[in-house]
Each structure stands twice: as C-alpha cells, then as structure tokens.
Amino acid sequence: MTFAVRMRIPTGQGGNAGQVSIDIDYNSIISRPCADARDGFFWTAVTTRVPKNVSNLNVTIWGNTDAVASDITIDRAVLVTGQIPRDLNTLLV
C-alpha cells in the first residue's frame, strides 16, 4: 500500500514539517522529512506491506512531528494498493 501526498511547505518551517504515515494496528511507517523542499509543491510518499489479518489501518498527514505549529498546504492525497501512486486527477481527464 502506498500513501502519497502533494504538498507545499513555506520557507521557515521546521525540518520535520510535512511528513506522512501509514499506521497498521498502531505501528507507524513514517516518511522521511523533506527539509530541503520549500516554497513549491512536491510529492512525498510512504509504502508498506499490509498483512491480510490487519484490524486497523489509518493514514496521517503530519503538520510537524516536532509538536510545534506548522504551515503546510495539501493539494492532494492518494492511497493506493501497490508501490506506484497514481494521481486520480490525471485519470479523470
């Protein structure tokens, strides 16, 4: 399963702003911080295998994992099976 998010983080935000995660039965797989991606839209994603017997699955977009206020803009988020996220917007054209 892959969770991908297109976002913008303004200059001046913390180094851990804009991470995403897939939470499976309360175990989190969190994306790496994108500290160099500022003032433009970019994609960040996280991928993991989901067991057949999973009882709980959540996805999270973190404003900042440092527990401080952050300013991020989300353009789109997609959750897909497999490792290659597909942007639904381009499929509808």
Score class of each variant (00 low, 15 high):
residue 38 R to E: 00
residue 20 V to S: 09
residue 45 A to F: 00
residue 30 I to V: 11
residue 50 V to N: 10
residue 18 G to T: 13
residue 58 N to F: 01
residue 20 V to E: 00
residue 19 Q to D: 01
residue 93 V to I: 04
residue 13 Q to D: 14
residue 75 D to H: 15
residue 73 T to N: 05
residue 44 T to W: 00
residue 33 P to R: 07
residue 18 G to F: 10
residue 9 I to T: 14
residue 17 A to D: 02
residue 16 N to S: 08
residue 44 T to C: 02
residue 32 R to L: 11
residue 73 T to Y: 09
residue 91 L to Y: 01
residue 7 M to T: 07
residue 62 W to P: 00
residue 36 D to C: 11
residue 6 R to F: 06
residue 89 N to W: 08
residue 1 M to V: 12
residue 36 D to F: 14
residue 55 S to E: 03
residue 68 V to P: 03
residue 83 Q to K: 08
residue 26 Y to K: 12
residue 81 T to E: 09
residue 19 Q to C: 11
residue 93 V to E: 06
residue 64 N to P: 00
residue 45 A to G: 05
residue 39 D to K: 04
residue 56 N to D: 12
residue 41 F to M: 06
residue 63 G to M: 02
residue 24 I to P: 00
residue 24 I to K: 06
residue 7 M to S: 11
residue 7 M to C: 14
residue 60 T to G: 06
residue 53 N to A: 14
residue 58 N to L: 05
residue 43 W to P: 09
residue 61 I to S: 00
residue 10 P to H: 03
residue 8 R to G: 03
residue 53 N to R: 14
residue 66 D to Y: 15
residue 25 D to I: 07
residue 1 M to Y: 10
residue 32 R to K: 15
residue 12 G to I: 01
residue 70 S to G: 08
residue 52 K to R: 13
residue 9 I to L: 10
residue 3 F to L: 08
residue 41 F to T: 03
residue 37 A to Y: 14
residue 7 M to E: 10
residue 23 D to A: 00
residue 54 V to I: 08
residue 69 A to P: 01
residue 54 V to E: 06
residue 49 R to A: 10
residue 52 K to D: 13
residue 92 L to P: 02
residue 18 G to M: 12
residue 85 P to L: 01
residue 19 Q to M: 07
residue 16 N to C: 05
residue 16 N to V: 01
residue 55 S to I: 11
residue 67 A to Y: 15
residue 24 I to F: 03
residue 30 I to S: 15
residue 9 I to S: 05
residue 15 G to Y: 15
residue 13 Q to T: 01
residue 80 V to Q: 10
residue 19 Q to N: 05
residue 37 A to I: 10
residue 49 R to L: 04
residue 91 L to F: 04
residue 8 R to W: 06
residue 66 D to N: 06
residue 92 L to Y: 09
residue 45 A to R: 04
residue 93 V to N: 05
residue 8 R to I: 05
residue 29 I to V: 05
residue 61 I to W: 03
residue 90 T to F: 11
residue 12 G to A: 09
residue 11 T to D: 13
residue 26 Y to E: 11
residue 89 N to R: 15
residue 4 A to D: 04
residue 79 L to F: 00
residue 60 T to W: 12
residue 6 R to A: 01
residue 84 I to L: 02
residue 67 A to C: 04
residue 72 I to G: 02
residue 48 T to N: 14
residue 3 F to Y: 15
residue 77 A to Y: 14
residue 72 I to A: 02
residue 90 T to Q: 04
residue 62 W to H: 13
residue 10 P to T: 03
residue 69 A to V: 07
residue 22 I to T: 12
residue 15 G to I: 07
residue 10 P to D: 01
residue 58 N to D: 10
residue 70 S to C: 06
residue 92 L to D: 03
residue 53 N to D: 14
residue 45 A to W: 11
residue 24 I to E: 08
residue 63 G to R: 02
residue 49 R to H: 10
residue 76 R to C: 15
residue 27 N to G: 04
residue 56 N to E: 07
residue 92 L to W: 13
residue 51 P to G: 11
residue 27 N to I: 11
residue 60 T to M: 05
residue 3 F to H: 08
residue 43 W to M: 12
residue 84 I to K: 12
residue 11 T to K: 13
residue 7 M to R: 12
residue 89 N to D: 13
residue 18 G to R: 03
residue 50 V to Q: 09
residue 37 A to G: 00
residue 24 I to R: 09
residue 52 K to M: 11
residue 51 P to M: 13
residue 62 W to I: 03
residue 47 T to N: 07
residue 25 D to V: 09
residue 68 V to S: 04
residue 36 D to Q: 11
residue 51 P to I: 15
residue 81 T to I: 07
residue 55 S to A: 04
residue 23 D to Q: 00
residue 63 G to D: 13
residue 79 L to E: 00
